[in-house]
Design a protein around this nucleic acid. Sequence first.
DNA 1: GGAAGTGTAACCCATGACGTTACAAAATGC
DNA 2: GCATTTTGTAACGTCATGGGTTACACTTCC
Lengths: 95, 95
Amino acid sequence: MRMHNPPHPGEVIRELCLTPLKLSVTKAAEGLGVTRKTLSSLLNGRSGISPEMAIRLSKAFGGSPESWLSQQMIYDLWETEHKLGEINVTVFNTI
Amino acid sequence: MRMHNPPHPGEVIRELCLTPLKLSVTKAAEGLGVTRKTLSSLLNGRSGISPEMAIRLSKAFGGSPESWLSQQMIYDLWETEHKLGEINVTVFNTI
DNA sequence: GGAAGTGTAACCCATGACGTTACAAAATGC
DNA sequence: GCATTTTGTAACGTCATGGGTTACACTTCC
């Protein structure tokens, strides 16, 4: 059922990429080819992993773009489910 | 390497959900709780599956929201990779 | 021929990713 | 202690996109 408040992807990036390599936000942003502000927003959960950012992360730190984007997907889905609450939809059939 | 032009998710929805049930776009849109225009845009590839839409599709036609969103993710990634082309990123390390 | 279904254009609005510039606070180095 | 670096963040603009309403033209079906 996948409950339980997934961490926002920014935390994961910081702990998986920056901290182990002792990379500063500034250096990492330069390496990724984005603005310091852009990376900061991501790390602090004010923006998400875009497809473009997923590709950059993949090239810079490894892992597949899909794995990076999947994290974001799970997070977005969790947020949307909790914001949408009950929606009424006609059940047509089971696939 | 996942090449080869993935179909846009709208096609899949039409062939997997509407056609088998002989649902009109209008009826399906009503069932999903969105505008006819919104569904039409999706079916014809002018918009993508948003997290909210993934939840609606899941409730109406079955399948997990993740499976619906994953399709979109693959498609977005493919598009972004072909639009971005060569980007220069510093390779920091392998995970 | 009338009704229903469909695509789509012209609008509006909200959100989000990314950028530049600038400022204040904290950490680091000498 | 003081200067430099790093960091977060605010204010602003740009661009793309999802969703909505309204309206029009075209097709299909009874």
